[in-house]
Amino acid sequence: MSSHEITHVQKLVFRVGQVMTRRVITITLTNTLLELKEVMRQRRISGVPVVNDAGVLVGIISIEDLLRAFEQGALNATVAERMSTTLITVRDTDLVDVAAQKFQQTGVGRMPVLDAQDRLVGMLTKGDITRGLLAEVQAETQDEEIARFRASHIFRDVESDHTSLTLRYTIPARDFTHGGEASSKIKRTLMRLGTDPQIVRRAAIATYEAEMNLIIHADHGGQITAEIDASQVTLIVQDDGPGIRDLKRALEEIGYTTTPPEIKQLGFGGGMGLKNIRKCADQMKIESQVGRGTRLEISLRLHTD
């Protein structure tokens, strides 16, 4: 399963109310089994909830109960005599996985759905769950699929000697709230272009480290430019200061950091950023001058072959 698919599955959270059948056909205690048989035949259903005069759920009767009565020649019996009063129900607000577990544990084929006031609001079968999930997966996937389809053909459809996409982002200094947005967008774009998830992940991590460096260290923030063509992504991250005083140590020495203590509390500044960027990238170039700024350029090949 690719990371892209996982993201979709992760979002699929369902309540029983979203997938249940809402138009519930009920039968009353005094109806006969012959009448029940007609309801089941006409509506093509195999189980019917039983309600009393006040409309409150009191039992459930299924095609199995009907068959048993038929074998015994008791089709004139009332629903009240033949129904099952052991009620296994779910709430409309229950998660679908809870309902699925209940189906498995109890072996029942259908469950009446009750709302918070114990009113009968629907019926749920395993089929409802499957249909609901499929419909939702389709709806969820469709927009992203269209975006992906459009994007992934761009390098084939656009004719030039060398086609590339340039994405530019301005990163404000000290903006911890939005830090990571540019990396997130670059990650999503690479996925839409159909890039291997492992490569997307490396590019995302490197970009995010660089983005956080701009936010933590750069006096005025900086710019991230991602240039993507059919074979590679090149990221250029630059700022106008303060510059890295000891580039060699920042690149080589584990734990070397100039991150202020208040930012360390946020979870950054282990002296690992540049080293991690180098680990993720296929190529990396960095130039820095104190008082002038830093320019980092990394590239990753988009195909493993």
Partner: peptide, 17 residues
């Protein structure tokens, strides 16, 4: 598993899948 509750934790989780 962490005590850090800022947005960067979420971003980090996102980047590393």
């Amino acid at each position: 598993i962490t005590e850090i509750v800022n947005p960067q934790v979420i971003r980090t989780a996102e980047m590393v899948d």
